[in-house]
Each structure stands twice: as C-alpha cells, then as structure tokens.
Simulated assay, not measured.
Amino acid sequence: MRGTSWELLSSLLVFILSVSRCHGGCAEVDSMTEAVAGESFLLGCVSCKRRAEVPAHATVDWHFRSTGEEEYVNIFHYDHPKPEILHADFNDRLEWQGTMGTQDVQTGAVFIHNVTFNDTGTYLCTFQRTLYLPRKNEIIIVEKEVELIVVAKANRELLSVVSEIMMYVLIVVLQLWMFVVLIYCYRKIWAEHEARDARKALRAHKKALLNEPFNITDKCDGVLME
C-alpha cells in the first residue's frame, strides 16, 4: 500500500514537473527531499525558458556529492534524445523523466530506483541552454541543488497531518450543519402544519356560525295585556 501511494505521488509530481510539455506554460516546482530506502524517488528539476518564441537547445547534468564529501561527481547527462548514466553506483538505477520529444528541455527530472542509504547527499542539477538569437547565440546556465535524505520508513509531513486534521474537522462541521438544517426544516414544517390546522379550524368555526339559525326571543313573553 505504501509503495502504491508513493508511486501515485511520484506520478503526480512528474505530471506537475512536466507541465512545460503542454502549451499551457511552465511551472518551476521544488523537488521533494526525503526518499525511502528500497523504493523509487523522483529528483525534480525545472528551468523554464523565459522567452518561449526563441528556439533553444538545452542539456541537463546531474551531479552528486555524498555526505561528508567536498567534490561533486557527474552521474547523469541528457542531450536529446540520449540519456547517459556516468557513474557506476547509479548503473541501471537512473531513469530520465524530463522533457521528451524536443531538444528544448525545460524539465530535467530523473528517477532513482532502488534507493539506498548511500544515496543520501546533495544533488546538483545543471541546465545549459543555448538560445538561438538572430545576431548571436546566448548560453544560459542554471543550477539547482536538492538535499536528499534517505530514511527507512516514510515520515508523515506536517502538511499531510494538517490536511488530515482539517478533513476530519470539515466532516464534523458538515455533519453538525446538516443536523441544524434538519432541525430548522422540521420546526418550519411543523409550524406551517400547525398554522394550516389553525386556519382549517377557523374556517370550520366561521362556517358553523353561518349555518346556525337565528334564535329570536319575544321580549313580550310574560307581559300581561290590560
């Protein structure tokens, strides 16, 4: 179950990071920073091109610096359409998940499969983009770091806990609100029922008065005539 949830979350993040593939635009989303040993992890890296109308060519490099080390080592290189794994420790474990089908790369995400505790450290994502301008080509280099921690078991993030609490609070509030609405509707219906009965009784009383014969008493009864 945990693996399935992680795969769904990773797929969602891939979709968010790959928004640049659509015509809607490009969103630079920070990568997650906690991986679970034995599972897969998505290293996210996005560099949006600011001038969409300018043709460009971009390459992506990933470097890794393990905890306690000072130097980075180049572990991955992507130059459309060919991804290359450059370090033996990551052989068969890195999978390109960035922009595909074009050399104008804006998403440079990669999957690390079968994560180990030795993968803990700092990852450096480097975009080298060449803009093909009319007068002179321009080279732009963008670097982004991802601090990765590998844990034995996934920790619940604060946002997840708060979201779950808010969900239960919302459920309770909705139930109370429905209870109040039911009481209000019941009282309104009962009041209308009583008013209708009162009107029926009043109409019946008026009808009875109209149908009742007049009793005229002779005031002269008992008066002796002289």
Rank of each mutant, 00 (worst) to 15 (best):
M1T: 11
G3L: 13
G3V: 12
G3R: 14
S10E: 10
S10V: 03
S11R: 09
L12S: 12
L13I: 07
L13N: 01
V14N: 01
V14W: 06
V14P: 07
F15G: 11
S18A: 13
V19W: 04
R21T: 15
C26V: 06
C26W: 03
V29C: 14
D30A: 14
S31P: 09
S31F: 04
T33P: 05
E34W: 04
E34V: 15
E34N: 12
G38H: 06
E39F: 04
F41D: 05
L42A: 07
C45H: 03
K49T: 12
R50G: 10
A52V: 15
E53V: 13
H57P: 11
V60C: 02
R65E: 02
T67A: 13
T67M: 12
G68S: 07
E70D: 10
K82Q: 02
P83H: 01
I85S: 03
I85P: 06
L86T: 02
D89W: 01
F90P: 06
N91C: 05
R93A: 07
E95V: 11
Q97F: 04
M100Q: 08
G101K: 14
V105N: 12
G108M: 07
V110R: 08
V110Y: 06
V110D: 02
F117I: 07
F117K: 10
D119E: 02
G121C: 11
T122D: 06
L124E: 05
L124D: 08
L133A: 00
K136G: 09
K136C: 07
I139W: 02
I139A: 00
I141T: 15
I141L: 09
E143P: 08
E143N: 13
K144N: 13
I149W: 09
V151M: 07
V151L: 13
R156S: 11
R156Y: 07
R156T: 00
V162I: 15
S163G: 12
E164Q: 14
E164I: 13
I165R: 10
M166H: 13
M166C: 11
M167A: 11
I171A: 03
V172Y: 08
V173I: 10
F179M: 09
V180P: 06
L182A: 03
I189E: 11
W190E: 15
E192S: 13
E192F: 11
A195N: 12
R196F: 02
R199K: 01
L202A: 00
L202I: 04
R203D: 07
K206Y: 08
K206T: 05
A208T: 08
L209N: 08
L209C: 05
E212H: 04
P213N: 04
P213W: 08
N215D: 00
I216C: 09
T217F: 02
D218W: 04
C220S: 03
C220R: 05
D221Q: 02
V223S: 04
V223I: 10
L224W: 00
L224K: 01
M225K: 10
